[in-house]
Amino acid sequence: MSPPKQHECSKDCNNIPLVPTTSDSNDKRPVPVSDDRLLNEYQAGTLPPSVSKQVLRPGGLKLKPTYVRGTRIFFHFETVDTETGRVYDDTRTHPKPMELIFGKKFKIPIWELALHTMREGELSAFQVPSEMCLSYPTVAKVIRESNQPGEKPRPRSCCCSQLANGNVTGVTGHEDLDTFQQNPRDLTFTFEMLEVNLPGQYDMEACYMTDQEKATSIPILKAEGNCLILKQQFTEAVAKYEEAGSRLEHLLLKERPGTAEYQNLTSQKVPILLNLAHALLKNKDFYDALRRCDAALEIEPDNVKGLFRRGLAHKGVGSFEEARKDFQQALSLDSTLKKAVKEQMGDLATLEETHNKKLRNTLKNLF
């Protein structure tokens, strides 16, 4: 069975800040448990003593699973007030299950720790003290708003921008969550582990990757695009090259222009852009191909492959004179292109004559 589609809100939740606590000595709210303490529990493979687990339905594996960093899981959850039984959220009413990747610092650390103890197919309930639930309202806000009927998934900036700075108390827009922020409660989280994908069994999305993982994936995506070109699967190749370029841009944003690393990353853009232009030309998407060639030639103005492919793009959009200039410049840099350029010049002459003839006939019929 193919894995469920990715749930947008789980990515957004990775960027939500924890609910800040006030320094007022009269504040009776519980003090949040540090991520470091939970990390130590996680590494030990145990739950904190204050968290209790009840298995409602065992999973399919007899042995306790070992989930390495990067393991992806799909799951449903229900959140209930432990004392009153009030239900806050239940994702079984949502169109998609939740998704989480172990080791990517989900903003409710106890969730990752609890899910780490479960098997595929298992249904279990975890009673969690309030001090480990303080970030629940902000996470729940994103989950709810990402699953409103008729609503398209919101960009993470829309969901999280108001939570990025300052005190977030009382800004969720949901009365029950705002009340919880003012008076945190012990919660019971019931999880149903639907599916487990180990690293290598799925394509990890860039938003979950470390910078090193992104850097490693770029040449792999480029090679996959090249293979698709050989198979004449040009649309699929475009997707591979575009994803490689997107990940490269994310890395560039973190480097200072002019540094050696910035120059190294920039130089990697050129072959990706030109391979992308080639795939776009094969799909007759000439304007987009022209844009990619322009971007590559801005980095390397004398790139012969870039000039020749931009000439093809200009020819495709009917800019015949611009095409001639590109072909001639490419030939001046590489004399081995003499035959190819001669053929293109002949095509340009034929196309231009046909174009001019149609134009003359059109003008003639106007009078």
Rank of each mutant, 00 (worst) to 15 (best):
C207Q: 13
Y208Q: 06
A215P: 00
A215Y: 03
N226R: 01
C227I: 13
P199Y: 07
T216A: 15
L221W: 00
C207A: 15
M204K: 12
S217H: 09
P219F: 03
K222R: 13
N226K: 05
N226W: 01
E213P: 04
C207R: 11
Q212L: 08
L221N: 00
G225L: 00
M204T: 03
G225N: 00
E205S: 13
M204I: 08
I220R: 14
T210P: 03
Q201A: 15
G200H: 13
D203C: 11
G225F: 00
A223D: 12
C207T: 11
I229P: 01
L228S: 01
P219H: 02
K231S: 14
G200L: 10
I218C: 08
Q232P: 06
S217T: 09
E205D: 14
N226G: 02
L230Y: 10
E213W: 03
E213R: 08
Q201R: 14
I220C: 11
L228W: 00
P199G: 06
T210A: 05
Y208T: 01
T216C: 10
K214R: 15
T210L: 04
E224R: 09
I218M: 09
K214D: 03
A223W: 10
K231H: 10
N226I: 02
Q201E: 14
D211L: 05
Q232L: 11
C227W: 04
K222M: 07
G225R: 00
P199H: 07
S217D: 08
P199F: 05
T216Y: 11
L228A: 03
K214V: 02
Y202I: 00
L230E: 15
A206I: 11
N226E: 06
E213I: 09
L198D: 12
N197I: 02
G200K: 13
